[in-house]
Simulated assay, not measured.
Amino acid sequence: MRKPVIVIAGALALLIACASPFVRAVDDNHSAAQLRNLVRQDCGSCHGLTLQGGLGPSLRPQPMQALGVDAIRLIIADGKPDTAMPPWRDLLTEQDIRQIAQGLLSGAYISDNHSTQESP
């Protein structure tokens, strides 16, 4: 049962590594819109398109509050060993990672109006 998850994680990591030259913005920092798209599309592919959870856990504000910005930042940067969560350190700047962590805590990636309300 764990083998398909490991294969999927490996394929995802390879895809990310191959795409890395195309992910970086020219100035090496991503705009808010680019980060929003990254979270909704790339993170949403495992954490659910509404970030309520899927293969990975929920990224909604309430569960994120238990972690705090620094723990979230480290998970984004370094990934989580033995899970499908890849490290993003080679693809994003520290500023990008911090902005994503803060956005997850605030609920900025949930809806177009940046609501922090939890959906049922």
Rank of each mutant, 00 (worst) to 15 (best):
N29Y: 01
D42P: 00
C18Y: 10
D27E: 02
Q41E: 08
C18N: 14
D28E: 11
L49P: 05
A13Q: 10
L15G: 15
G53Q: 06
V69T: 12
L74Q: 15
G68L: 07
Q62W: 10
H47V: 06
L59Y: 03
N37D: 15
S20N: 13
L74I: 10
S45G: 04
C46P: 01
R40K: 15
G68H: 07
L55S: 06
D82R: 12
A11I: 15
A66V: 09
D42N: 10
I16L: 15
N29G: 01
D82M: 13
R40Y: 05
A77W: 01
V69F: 03
T50M: 08
L12K: 10
D70Y: 10
L49Y: 13
L15C: 10
A77P: 03
L67T: 03
S31A: 07
S45A: 13
A66S: 13
N29T: 08
P81D: 12
G54I: 07
Q65C: 00
D70W: 08
D27A: 02
A17P: 02
H47Q: 00
L55N: 01
G44N: 05
S58C: 05
L59G: 04
A11Y: 11
C43K: 02
R24A: 08
T50R: 11
L38D: 06
D42M: 08
D42C: 03
T83A: 07
C18D: 12
A17K: 12
L15I: 05
S20C: 09
V23D: 00
P61I: 00
Q52T: 13
V39T: 06
G53Y: 08
I16V: 06
L15Y: 09
C46K: 02
G44C: 02
G44M: 05
A25T: 01
D70R: 09
V23A: 05
L51H: 13
L74Y: 10
I75K: 11
N29W: 01
A19E: 12
S58A: 13
V26M: 09
T83F: 07
R36N: 10
I76K: 00
G53S: 09
R36G: 04
G48V: 06
G48I: 05
H30G: 02
C43V: 05
R24W: 02
G79Y: 02
P81S: 14
A32E: 15
D28R: 09
R24L: 08
L38T: 09
Q52M: 12
A11R: 10
V39A: 07
A66M: 08
G56T: 03
A17Q: 12
I76H: 03
D70C: 09
P81M: 12
L35R: 12
A66G: 08
G48L: 05
A33P: 02
G79H: 03
M64W: 03
D82Q: 13
I72A: 06
R24Y: 01
K80V: 15
D78R: 11
M85C: 03
D82S: 12
P57F: 00
A17I: 05
N37M: 11
V39Y: 02
A19V: 04
G68D: 07
D42V: 11
D78C: 05
S31W: 00
G44A: 04
Q52W: 12
C18E: 14
R60K: 03
L15R: 11
M64A: 14
P21G: 07
S45E: 04
